[in-house]
């Protein structure tokens, strides 16, 4: 029984860590622009697919992975430059529809550049399961957890200690005030798309050896990442991470103990209940809406 529980927990944490990375991407862009970027899942796909094709071309992981992340970041920057920037001043819903258009466009592009098949990626360090307390974990899952932790620490440092990071944080709190003290708000927006695209790509690369990847893998992961970001509280870094982990664990626990057919439904019910009591998610900004 307890070994079973440990297994569910380990699985939940691994899945949750991926959701957390995607959720962080949502939150970073939301902070800079108040836009929900529905193309976030496509960054996940680009990371995975680019790594697959680069390593199929003979590049070692040490080269293929950074290149894939850079590629995704460039796509993120291009999205900001050519789609979000020109629509400056449009309503938030319009911007959301633009990102939905972008996600369809990127999926179509990936289908043409690559193909429609599923691709496997070799695990970074072998695939011999490691036993832990009667359960097992894949070395790749340790990579997922380790890299997620490292990224969370790096982001904490970035937003807390660097000038650019602080500028981004300031912009999220009050755009106008940030502009007044001389922060280049457009630059912040630009960087935020690059950064969250890179985060998405990392998630896509980490998970690909476990799940395989394909041109439309971003749809579901994007959706779950959005759910995690909302559960944690939009715009909150801690919230994104906690939201991701809670969602991942909730899913595996319901699959294990309740009903695997309704596990996603159960996860969404949990989110609805949380929102009912905490309308801004677990760690979202509280307080009145500005009039």
């Amino acid at each position: 029984m307890s070994a079973q529980f440990v297994q569910y927990l380990l699985t939940g944490l691994t899945v949750g860590a991926i959701y957390a990375l995607v959720a962080l991407g949502f939150s970073i862009i939301f902070n800079a622009s108040h836009v929900i970027n529905f193309a976030q899942g496509e960054f996940v796909m680009i990371g995975g697919m680019a790594t697959v094709s680069l390593s199929a071309a003979g590049l070692p992981y040490l080269l293929a992975i950074p290149l894939a992340i850079v590629a995704a970041a460039l796509v993120g920057l291009a999205l900001e430059k050519f789609a979000v920037e020109p629509a400056r001043g449009a309503s938030v819903v319009t911007l959301i529809i633009i990102t939905i258009g972008a996600s369809i466009f990127l999926r179509g592009l990936a289908m043409v550049i690559w193909d429609k098949r599923f691709h496997a990626l070799k695990p970074f360090t072998g695939d011999t399961p490691i036993p832990i307390g009667g359960a097992t974990i894949l070395p790749q899952s340790l990579w997922v957890l380790g890299v997620t932790l490292a990224i969370v620490l790096a982001l904490t440092w970035f937003f807390g200690r660097t000038l650019l990071g602080k500028a981004m944080l300031a912009t999220s709190h009050n755009r106008l005030a940030a502009q007044l003290v001389g922060i280049n708000v457009r630059m912040v927006l630009f960087v935020s798309f690059g950064l969250s695209a890179a985060l998405g790509a990392v998630a896509g690369i980490l998970i690909a050896p476990i799940t395989t990847t394909s041109y439309d893998v971003g749809v579901m992961l994007g959706l779950k990442g959005f759910a995690a970001a909302i559960l944690g509280g939009l715009g909150s870094g801690v919230g994104a991470v906690v939201g991701g982990l809670v969602l991942g664990i909730a899913e595996t626990m319901s699959a294990g103990y309740l009903s695997s057919a309704y596990k996603d439904a159960i996860a969404f019910v949990i989110i609805l209940v949380v929102l009912f009591f905490l309308p801004s998610g677990l760690f979202g900004k509280r307080g009145g809406e500005r009039v």
């Binding site: 297994q7 899945v15 695997s260």
Partner: peptide
């Protein structure tokens, strides 16, 4: 008799059961 969802990334929970 277990099931998994579309786009699921992991089925260890069902298989453990």
């Amino acid at each position: 008799d277990e099931t998994y969802g579309g786009g699921d990334t992991d089925m260890t929970a069902q298989l453990t059961k």
